[in-house]
Amino acid sequence: KWEEIAERLREEFNINPEEAREAVEKAGGNEEEARRIVKK
Rank of each mutant, 00 (worst) to 15 (best):
N14A: 05
E25T: 10
G29W: 04
I5W: 02
P17D: 08
E31V: 05
E31T: 03
P17M: 15
A23G: 03
R8L: 06
R10L: 11
E33S: 07
E25Y: 14
A20W: 02
I5K: 03
W2V: 05
E32D: 12
E22M: 14
V24E: 00
A34N: 00
I15F: 03
A27I: 00
R35N: 03
E25H: 13
R10T: 10
E3D: 12
A27E: 01
G28L: 12
N16K: 13
E25I: 14
R8Q: 06
K26P: 00
A6D: 02
R10W: 13
N30P: 00
A20T: 02
E4Q: 12
E19Y: 10
A27F: 01
A27L: 01
E18N: 12
V24F: 02
A34R: 00
L9Q: 02
E32K: 08
R36I: 10
L9D: 01
E22R: 14
F13L: 07
E31Q: 06
E32Y: 08
A20V: 03
E31C: 03
E19Q: 13
E33I: 10
K26S: 10
K39G: 11
E12I: 09
E12D: 08
R35V: 06
V24H: 00
G28F: 15
A20L: 05
N30H: 07
E33M: 09
R36Q: 13
E12T: 06
A23L: 06
K40Q: 15
A23R: 01
E22L: 14
L9W: 02
V24G: 01
N16S: 15
W2K: 05
R36S: 08
A20F: 03
E32A: 10
R36W: 08
A23N: 02
K26M: 13
E4I: 09
E32Q: 09
F13E: 03
E11A: 15
E11W: 14
E32G: 06
E32C: 07
G28A: 10
E19F: 13
E7W: 10
E18I: 11
N14M: 13
A34W: 00
V24W: 04
L9V: 04
A6L: 09
N16E: 13
E11P: 01
E31W: 13
G28E: 07
E31N: 02
A23W: 05
I5Q: 03
A6W: 09
N14F: 09
A34F: 00
V24D: 01
N30T: 03
K26D: 04
A20S: 06
K39N: 11
N30S: 10
P17V: 14
A27K: 01
I37W: 07
R36E: 15
E18H: 10
G28R: 12
A27S: 10
K39W: 11
A6I: 15
N30I: 09
L9K: 01
K39A: 14
V38P: 02
E19T: 09
E3R: 13
K1F: 13
E3L: 13
E18M: 11
R21S: 10
E18Y: 12
A6R: 04
R10K: 09
G28P: 00
N14T: 06
L9C: 00
K40M: 15
E33Y: 07
A6Q: 07
K40H: 12
G29S: 01
E19D: 08
V24P: 00
E3W: 09
E32P: 12
